[in-house]
Amino acid sequence: MFEARLANGNIFKMIVESIRELVVDVNIDCSTEELSIQCMDSAHVALVSMSLSQSAFDHFRCDRSLSLGLNLPNVSKIFKMMGRDDTMVLKAEDSADKLMLMFENDKSGTIADFELKLMAIEAEQLGVPDTAYKCSISMPSSEFQRIVRDLQVMGDTCKISCTKEGLKFSATGQIGTGNILMRQNVASEKEEDHVTIDMEEPVELNFALRYLNFFTKATPLSPTVILKMSPGLPIVIEYPIEQLGHVKYYLAPKMEE
């Protein structure tokens, strides 16, 4: 029996919204420790790695590890019927062939319950090695979203380079070239506005802006976003969910031919 109760159901809704355009059919893996998802997009260019700790839930029971095969666009439709302040309850028997979702509104006392058929999804799991990245940048997630959106006007590829002068985003296309340079900023009193750049050695990599734009769907989850890069490796873009978990995106680079 798997049963989990999340007082702030909106967190789970935001997690679904942050990945449903990138990965469609996913297994939500339930263990005694957490709910997690690891899934690549159909082109195997990006990988989503989500984790939500059992400590995020007011009640969490998982007798046996389960894999809940779900179509995220369908899950997203169901979440449209969840109120902003609703409590969300997930429930599945061990012989999981369906998932129960319940939305409870404490104020009005209404309870909505939905049953989703589960799918058997054979997904290739990748071993993502723990890497000591050469550059790690923490910045306001809204700033990263704006940069990605603005640079899409200029072209389809973003060069991200981290040097001692700062973090530069560049895009070149038919109409010209755009550069946005961010410098370390830990002066502003609002922690969320800080830009911290830890650079062990300079890194310069190219990425498809289309994917970076998908990733910024996770902006509502976290006021800050963390970018980690090493030469010749996929970038990791991490949206922490308070202390409760994270949504991480790995993106393979575009290599000069």
Binding site: Q125, L126, K254
Partner: peptide, 14 residues
């Protein structure tokens, strides 16, 4: 022109 790589080149399948 830069060519898109895929993650299989970086992460091993489990």
């Amino acid at each position: 022109k830069s060519k898109q790589t895929t993650l299989g080149g970086f992460f091993a399948a489990k």
